[in-house]
Each structure stands twice: as structure tokens, then as C-alpha cells.
Design a protein around this nucleic acid. Structure first.
Lengths: 239, 239
DNA sequence: GGACTTCAAGTCAGAGTGACCCTTAGTGGG
DNA sequence: CCCACTAAGGGTCACTCTGACTTGAAGTCC
């Protein structure tokens, strides 16, 4: 059962014994863009679930669950997303695995964490109830386990990756203007971007293709519509 | 035991049941620099262990073992390194977690994989025996499980990260010349680098500090010695 | 002493970026 | 109907970074 066994002495204990002690969970940090409740500016939100059992009963925590034997890691994250937000992710990526011995009082738990991007308008409001609630990503309360660290790490990864990878498209509709895309970047990075420079960079990157159509009735000059260019990501962009 | 439980119905099965089915292993891709057997140029090597049981009995595989309940993930990787190469890593970092359902015939195994950098001259030759053998990283044979994919991924990560992070220092002694450091980069990237440009970039990066001393008896102009500058890594450099 | 090697420092053209300006094309108000 | 306003779209300019290249410095070896 042990997958890889080094030659030396104690290298091959019966892994069935230890399997009892370490359990495996898959959690997911789900990001969506919505207006900030006070400033109104587009900001990152994420859903949290209230724990209904010890430890940390009553605390908010990242959605997730134990890994089922029949499902892949990403599939598990996808199922969590389905339960929590009622939709399928536009972007799903493994973040990191957290396995400190003392991270879960009462039992050894290793969490493989994914992060996902979803479109806010697709979120089924039905799931937003007593035990599932959306929070501004930078203003989450005290969470169970080491989940605050995980959220911080996921935020850093997202903000880093959006600068060199076209993941922002995941927040946009099929067709979008460069203004839409820039609003996504600004919401994620919490910083205004120069429209002209942003345009230049995006067009040079080749991740978008013009559809030839424009948006009409915009109270100003009609912006051109673009579509995401589905190209194979370069190895450097992986992470 | 389930760490995070979403509200809905089937979200909380007894995790003790599933704990039997999924076992957790930690494997490590260990890199060292040594001369290539034919070309003589400095190249990446890694140790593999021969499997002594099914599945894949007799095949070469990444060193690793089951996660012990009392040890952290990185500690487990460190122990593997100790067993396999007989030393402590200069650099150790989590690579990725692999958990496809069918990746291990005969039982569901999730592998959390780390990668490490060690100095070749520190490797105890004692461990290089019947069941542990070093291979040129780009010329590994057919491996057990999905370990070829893992090696490829680890190589890509190392080659990508060395360009923006001072991890190359891990391959160097406490004091080193810029020529030494450049040789490390060239060995990893399998490409000649312009000495002058390399010098300029490294010095601009601020990751090294001059010791004031020089190497003597070098058959040419004596190069200055530098020391690694231990600075806190920026968040961008983390993943 | 001259050939040879690497270290060290500088030059130069091209690409990319941030800051800024200006024109364009629409809406809406007086 | 004209003008203010807004955002799109296009361009300039200075600065930085990079790759390619040149030159001088400081040793050893023959």
C-alpha cells in the first residue's frame, strides 16, 4: 500500500496502521467579484461555511470535505464548489497542501487546498443561507484551524498570478470589453490601472481576440468586444 | 474528524470509513549537480529507489514513504532525504500533490511531493547502492506510477524558479565566486550564460554580498568571493 | 615575455513599462 | 442645437531591463 519505499530499515511499516491516524480533506478557496458593501468598488469575496461540530463548532471555515476514494482531488474540489456556490468553476487550481501536526485539534488532518474563480452573477443565492455566507476576502473573521493563513496565501497567489496569466478572463462573460477586464484586475489588485497602458499590455499579450462587434448605448464611445483566446499555457505559467 | 464540513446532506460521512481507502505518502525529488557522465558538463542528478514490492516491483521510483502521524509534511520529506542521500537539504519546498484515482494500481494513494536541492559533495556515497541509485535528471528511465510526470514537473519548476529566485545558492558553498554561481545556473538551465550579463543581474538583485576576499591560485585573474544574502523572500517568490 | 584564461567593467540597440496627452464617439443637459 | 462629460482608443516620452558585444585587468603556463 505504501507507494514508494526506500530501502533502509524502518522504511516500510504497515501503512494500514498509520492510515487510521491521518485523514485527508480537500478544501477550496472560492473567489468571486462583487461590489464592496461600503465603498461599492468591485472586490473579492469568498464563501465560508459554519462548522456544525467540534472542533471549532460555530466558527467559519473554508468549504471542503474528506476525499472520497472514488474521486480525484480536483473533482473533490469541484463537488465542494457545487455544494457551496451551486456552480462550476471558471478556473480551478491546486493551491497547496497543509499538514502541520497540530493544525487540527483532535485528529491529524492533511488538507489539500484548491482555489477557484467563479462569476458572481452565476452564484445561486439559494445556498447563501444560515451556514454558508459570503465575506469580503480581505475582511474575513477569525476562522477555524489555519484557514486564515490559507486565505491569505490564496489571495497572494491570485494577485500574483493575475499579473502574468490570463486568469482574469474567468471573471468575465464570454464577450467582454477591455474596460470590463480592467475592472477585474483593479478589483483583484485593489489598485487603479492606467487604461491606455492596460490596453497595450493585454493586446500585446495575445490572450484576447476582437470579435468585431461593439457595445452600444454606453453613454460614451462604444467599446469593442473581445473574446478569450484559448491557447495552451506555457510551462512558465503553470505555477 | 472531518476538518471542514459543508452544510448540505451528504457532506459528513464518517471519515473513519474513507480513511481506510485513501492512504497518504510523501515523496521527494532530490536534485544535485554533478558532471554529466559523457559530456562532463555540470548537470542535474536525482536519486531513485528500487521498489521491493508490488505494484511496480523492481521499478525505479521516487524516494518517499507514508506520512507518519507525528511528523509534518516537510519533516517527512526531510526524513526521506536523510534515508536516501544521507544529508539535510539546502532547499526544500513543496511541489504539488498528486491524487488521480488510478495512479496507483492496487490502492488509492495520494502523494504530496516535495523537491529539494542538495550539494553533491555532501552526498554520502554509502547510500548509493543496490536499491538507491543516482540518475541524470533528464535521462531517468521508465518509473513507477506517475513518477515520470512528477520528475518532469519538478524539473520545470526548478528551471523556472532559478530565474527569479536565489535558490541557486543552495548548490554553492558558503562562499562562492560569481563564476561558481553561473556554473550552477548553466547546469540547471543547460544553457551557456553571458558572464558579464549574469554578473550584472546577480549584483543588481542584491542576493549576494561581497566578502572582500578573493580566490588565489586560479590560473587567471583572481575572482572575488561572495556570500549569500539572507533576506526575507518576497511574497511573489513563494510559489 | 607572450599566449591564454577568466574576471570585471562598460557600451549599445531593442523591448517593455509607467506617466501623460490627445482625439474619437457616444450620451445627456441647458 | 450646442456644449459638457465620459470612456475608448491611439500615441509620445523617459526610464529600465536585457542580450550581444567590446575592452581592460590580473593572474598562470609555456
Amino acid at each position: 500500500m505504501t507507494e514508494t519505499v526506500a530501502a533502509p530499515p524502518e522504511a516500510s511499516p504497515c501503512s494500514d496502521e498509520s492510515a487510521h491516524a491521518v485523514s485527508l480533506a480537500v478544501s477550496t478557496v472560492i473567489f468571486a467579484l462583487r461590489p464592496h458593501p461600503t465603498t461599492g468598488e468591485s472586490t473579492l469575496w469568498l464563501p465560508l461555511v459554519r462548522r456544525i461540530r467540534d472542533p471549532y463548532r460555530g466558527s467559519w471555515a473554508l468549504p471542503g470535505g474528506p476525499l472520497e476514494p472514488h474521486e480525484d482531488l480536483a473533482a473533490s474540489a469541484r463537488h465542494t464548489l457545487e455544494r457551496t456556490a451551486g456552480l462550476t468553476p471558471r478556473h480551478l487550481e491546486q493551491l497547496y497542501s497543509f499538514g502541520a501536526v497540530d493544525r487540527s485539534p483532535g485528529g491529524r488532518v492533511v488538507s489539500i487546498v484548491y482555489w477557484a474563480l467563479v462569476r458572481a452573477d452565476e452564484v445561486a443565492s439559494a445556498v447563501d443561507g444560515e451556514n454558508v455566507q459570503w465575506f469580503v476576502a480581505d475582511e474575513v473573521p477569525q476562522l477555524a484551524f489555519d484557514h486564515n493563513d490559507i486565505v491569505t496565501y490564496a489571495l497572494a497567489r491570485l494577485r500574483s498570478k493575475i499579473t502574468y496569466s490570463p486568469i482574469a478572463h474567468a471573471f468575465c462573460a464570454d464577450e467582454f470589453t477591455l474596460g470590463d477586464l480592467r475592472a477585474v484586475h483593479e478589483g483583484v489588485l485593489r489598485r487603479r490601472l492606467d487604461p491606455a497602458n492596460f490596453r497595450r499590455q493585454i493586446l500585446a499579450g495575445g490572450s484576447v481576440v476582437p470579435t468585431g462587434r461593439c457595445v452600444t448605448g454606453t453613454s460614451h464611445r462604444p467599446p469593442a468586444l473581445y473574446r478569450s483566446q484559448h491557447r495552451a499555457p506555457t510551462p512558465e505559467e503553470q505555477p
